[in-house]
């Protein structure tokens, strides 16, 4: 596993992480650059994520974390005037290759947004929305919904009111509903874009617990601007700053012995 720094400050050598197998990466970014119009948002990101691994991307606002996620599931296609260079591979295949089935990609690469966005329908219909898109019906659908709600640690709280509007749930519950919604399409990768940013501390902990349980079964990329949260989650942490990947290392190592001055400043709260 390597994390490489890019950009004008000069490269440091690759940091090897034990227990990895080159070539088996689930997600592989190779010098990936991205522009919104003429504004560069990603300036050459290279990193790998192993199958079943949980990678935390940490950094201040505007560092390109969300942009990177939205490139992985090509949600940025909805924004006009964007441009990219380099490659973004999932399971060894380039995400931006012409002829890619984007809808299928988005099913396999699920996303949980920063604000819980329940669709204006019942709790059941929210979770069932995804599978219904892909033709799942009847018994199988009901089982899938229950399984997803259990995996998101929400089943016990809503099992008696699946027909209620999703807006009747609290913020934390709605976010777990969003997670259930994503799980229902049986993705392989789950992208989580600051999912706890609108939540109170207790709901935040519940969501983090859920993420912990999902680890291993799914490949997770978790974005946060909060160093404490990154530290709590463990796993490897990639520090993004102004569109660059500054450094990437296991949490313990990054927080005790950061290699880059910028990382150190960020962790100690000097900016961001």
């Amino acid at each position: 596993m390597t994390g490489r720094t890019g950009g004008a400050n000069g490269s440091r050598g690759p940091v090897a992480v034990p227990g990895s197998e080159p070539g088996a990466a689930k997600i592989l970014a190779r010098d990936f650059k991205f522009w919104y119009g003429s504004v560069p948002a990603l300036k050459g990101i290279s990193l790998e994520v192993a199958p079943g691994e949980q990678l935390t991307i940490m950094g201040p606002t505007g560092s390109g974390k969300t942009t990177f996620l939205r490139c992985l599931n090509r949600l940025n296609d909805l924004v006009p005037g964007t441009r990219f260079e380099g490659s973004l591979l999932i399971d060894g295949r380039d995400v931006y290759r012409p002829g890619t089935d984007v809808d299928d990609l988005r099913r396999r690469v699920g996303m949980v947004f920063a604000l819980p966005i329940p669709l204006p329908m019942s709790i059941f219909d929210n979770v069932a929305y995804g599978p219904r898109l892909h033709g799942v019906r009847g018994r199988r659908l009901a089982e899938l919904v229950e399984r997803s709600l259990r995996a998101a640690a929400l089943w016990d709280e809503v099992k008696d009111r699946l027909g209620d509007s999703a807006f009747s749930l609290s913020g934390g519950q709605q976010q777990r509903l969003s997670i259930a919604r994503v799980l229902a399409v049986e993705p392989e990768i789950i992208l989580m874009d600051e999912p706890c940013s609108g939540l109170d501390p207790i709901s935040t902990l519940r969501v983090e617990e859920t993420v912990e349980q999902l680890r291993g079964k799914y490949t997770i990329v978790f974005v946060t601007h909060n160093p404490q949260q990154a530290a709590r989650l463990g796993g490897r942490v990639a520090f993004f700053y102004l569109g660059e990947l500054v450094e990437c290392a296991p949490a313990a190592q990054l927080f005790t012995r950061p290699r880059d001055r910028r990382t150190e400043d960020y962790i100690s709260g000097r900016f961001g």
Binding site: L75, L78, G110, F113, L133
Partner: peptide, 13 residues
Amino acid sequence: RAYREVSYSLGGS
């Protein structure tokens, strides 16, 4: 717009 993004992100055409 958020509703559309949710639908797209779940693989909707």
